[in-house]
Amino acid sequence: MADGLSFREAQTALELCLAQLQDQDLDVEKMADLYRRAQTYADRCESVLSQVEQEVMQWDPSQPDSAPTPYTP
């Protein structure tokens, strides 16, 4: 469901789910479904952010035992 979404798409879908969860007239089943969907979108956002973080990490091949460091311009 959320695997192919961009960060922005997943974030927007998450925000929509959260807004719907604030509706006090929701029945329990609908609330549970919205919660699961929101969690899926939140996981997708986290996945995209993690992937981007890995892409901007730098590794110095001349020091193979050193951990990658964040990119600094």
Rank of each mutant, 00 (worst) to 15 (best):
1 M>E: 09
1 M>S: 14
2 A>N: 07
2 A>F: 07
3 D>K: 12
3 D>R: 12
3 D>M: 06
5 L>N: 05
5 L>D: 06
7 F>G: 02
7 F>C: 09
8 R>A: 11
9 E>T: 06
9 E>V: 05
9 E>M: 13
9 E>W: 06
9 E>Y: 03
10 A>R: 09
10 A>V: 07
11 Q>D: 10
11 Q>G: 00
12 T>I: 14
12 T>R: 13
13 A>T: 01
14 L>Q: 07
15 E>W: 01
15 E>K: 04
17 C>G: 02
17 C>W: 03
17 C>K: 00
17 C>D: 11
19 A>S: 13
19 A>D: 14
19 A>N: 13
20 Q>N: 10
20 Q>L: 12
20 Q>Y: 04
21 L>M: 15
21 L>C: 04
21 L>Y: 05
22 Q>L: 03
22 Q>Y: 03
22 Q>C: 03
23 D>Q: 10
23 D>I: 00
23 D>G: 04
23 D>H: 10
23 D>E: 10
24 Q>I: 08
25 D>L: 06
26 L>R: 06
28 V>N: 09
28 V>E: 13
28 V>C: 04
30 K>Y: 03
30 K>W: 00
30 K>R: 14
31 M>K: 15
32 A>L: 09
32 A>Q: 14
32 A>K: 13
32 A>H: 09
34 L>F: 08
34 L>N: 03
35 Y>K: 13
37 R>N: 10
37 R>D: 14
37 R>C: 07
38 A>K: 01
39 Q>H: 09
39 Q>N: 14
41 Y>F: 15
41 Y>M: 05
42 A>I: 00
42 A>F: 10
42 A>T: 01
44 R>F: 12
44 R>W: 09
45 C>Q: 12
45 C>M: 15
45 C>T: 10
45 C>Y: 04
45 C>E: 09
46 E>S: 13
46 E>I: 09
47 S>A: 07
47 S>L: 13
48 V>G: 05
48 V>R: 07
48 V>A: 03
49 L>H: 05
49 L>T: 11
50 S>H: 10
51 Q>C: 01
52 V>W: 11
53 E>V: 00
54 Q>D: 13
55 E>I: 07
56 V>D: 04
56 V>T: 14
56 V>C: 11
56 V>M: 10
57 M>Y: 09
57 M>E: 11
57 M>P: 03
57 M>N: 12
57 M>V: 07
58 Q>F: 08
59 W>H: 13
59 W>V: 01
59 W>C: 01
59 W>K: 11
60 D>H: 05
60 D>K: 06
60 D>V: 00
60 D>Q: 06
61 P>H: 03
61 P>N: 02
61 P>K: 05
62 S>R: 08
63 Q>T: 10
64 P>V: 06
64 P>S: 03
64 P>F: 02
64 P>N: 02
65 D>L: 14
66 S>H: 15
67 A>Q: 11
68 P>Q: 07
69 T>M: 08
69 T>D: 00
69 T>E: 11
70 P>R: 00
70 P>C: 01
71 Y>R: 12
71 Y>I: 02
71 Y>G: 08
71 Y>A: 05
72 T>Y: 02
72 T>K: 08
72 T>W: 00
73 P>C: 02
73 P>M: 01
73 P>Q: 00
